[in-house]
Design a protein around this nucleic acid. Structure first.
Lengths: 275, 275
DNA sequence: GGTCAACAGATGATCGATCATTTTTTGTAT
DNA sequence: ATACAAAAAATGATCGATCATCTGTTGACC
């Protein structure tokens, strides 16, 4: 006896797929009959991807009827998918009050990152202690696959590259895979997903902020309000500089330790970019 | 902002409740209108309790129609409850193949216990480091409540005392509550539930084994098969003795360390009774 | 003006029927 | 007897209708 853990499936998000019309277009390859999974499972995967990617923002109410209409299905599969999503704390549910995309907060972020550090530390130490040559190889492969993929599908638009996301997950998993504890791995992956969501949301917010700044500057300029326009532009440059400064500090910190031994694991600043 | 974690509710299992007729019998106390929770939530709680207590054994298939009939409800609430149960890994699900109570295995037990030790260690250390006087007090209270409750509702029959179970959970939670990480606490509680299930299952199996041994001895005696009867009886005594021996060793070990310092946390034998 | 209550619309929860797939049974040929 | 295949039964998945509850609005009253 032994099989357990249906293993949340995770991995590759399907395409947009929102339009019900879909069907027979693009017969390109053999196009296996597909649709293996049940309708509820597809909805689950789709919603999960959208929530993690930030396409559906935190606090967003998930109305069953609306989603059913949007995906062109009945109510049951939606409800089922929603229920499954609560498993990973991506969605929360209140009796008689429906489903909501879980909120994010600075507090929760700090908590989550701390837990993530703890669990991954344990898992990584065990992995290093127990992992054999095969584990090393898998890790190298995972790293290689990750490093040759472009980070963004569209850098300017901040559209993530799904393949990179997938490889990123695979890399982190490969790190801890030899720890020998399915439970621990499961927890780590759950935290990975949540961290991923924060990452995407932050990115999204940053992009939106930049766009908004551009708009404000433009408006002030068109309105011939020189003072305001200049002020906004200056702030805009400042903010950009701050981002660069943070990055430079990071690089400097990476170079400096040449003198001393670079050991000393110590707790890393949890405020840093989750990666 | 901050509310998250719908918080699995856990706690007190309602009565058998299988009969739909139920209703107005035993108006004993005020009998508040109750039924606060949604139907699905009640099924969830009931099934969860039954699975953890071992009333529904591992590998048991959970057929939607059957459960619906048993509880006198429609299919939807059952399905919903089942889906929510997969959250805690108490139930697993395969597309088109329905729900099953998660299997148990020696391997999974070892894995789970190890993870449980790791996570609780971290949580406990943090709790001790961060917990204030209020935490201490709550812990003392939790311990006191637990220690004055009878372990069994019926020792001979091995029927657990629900209040004890509840206080037990509360005690373990109180221990780590001050660790400041909701995520970590959540994981620990999930593992608590799974460990609880193992505990109950083991107890149940032990009781069944004893009963079976009695029956076999009786049958051999009635059949006038002296050799077999005596052999069975001897083994029976041996087994009982082994249980006592294990207990005595535990007590001896607890007394011995008077000489040396009793520090040295070290890894505890995971095979011991999870408590 | 503000507060509360009745109302209406929206939304969640539940039901029973129906479709699709899996599992079991039954029958037949080797 | 065994193995395979078709048919039957069981079971999971999905649907749309319906009931219950919640939310926001309107309007009377203080």
């Amino acid at each position: 006896m032994g099989e357990q853990k249906s293993g949340a499936g995770s991995g590759a998000a399907s395409g947009p797929a929102s339009a019900p019309g879909g069907g027979t277009s693009a017969p390109g390859r053999g196009a296996k009959p597909a649709s293996d999974p049940t309708l509820a499972s597809r909805l689950f995967a789709e919603l999960r991807a959208q929530i993690i990617s930030g396409a559906i923002p935190p606090r967003q109410r998930l109305r069953v009827r609306q989603l059913a209409a949007q995906f062109g299905t009945g109510l049951s599969p939606v409800r089922e998918a929603l229920n499954r999503l609560t498993r990973d704390d991506l969605v929360s549910h209140n009796d008689q009050r429906g489903f909501v995309v879980s909120a994010v907060s600075e507090q929760d972020l700090a908590d989550m990152i701390r837990a993530r550090c703890w669990l991954n530390e344990r898992a990584l130490r065990e992995s290093i202690a127990l992992g054999g040559p095969d584990w090393e190889e898998r890790l190298l492969v995972a790293f290689h696959r990750l490093s040759r993929l472009p980070r963004w599908a569209d850098e300017a638009e901040g559209i993530a590259n799904p393949e990179w996301e997938s490889a990123h997950r695979a890399f982190h998993r490969a790190l801890i895979e030899a720890c020998g504890s399915g439970w621990l791995i499961g927890f780590c992956e759950q935290l990975f997903d949540v961290a991923d969501r924060y990452r995407h949301i932050a990115r999204k917010a940053a992009m939106a902020r930049v766009r908004d700044e551009h708009r404000q500057i433009m408006e002030a300029a068109v309105a011939r309000d020189a003072d305001r326009a200049v002020d906004l532009l200056n702030r805009h440059f400042q903010r950009t500089a701050e981002l660069c400064r943070a990055e430079l500090q990071r690089r400097a910190a990476a170079v400096a330790p040449t003198g001393r031994r670079a050991r000393r694991a110590k707790a890393v600043d949890p405020a840093g970019p989750p990666a």
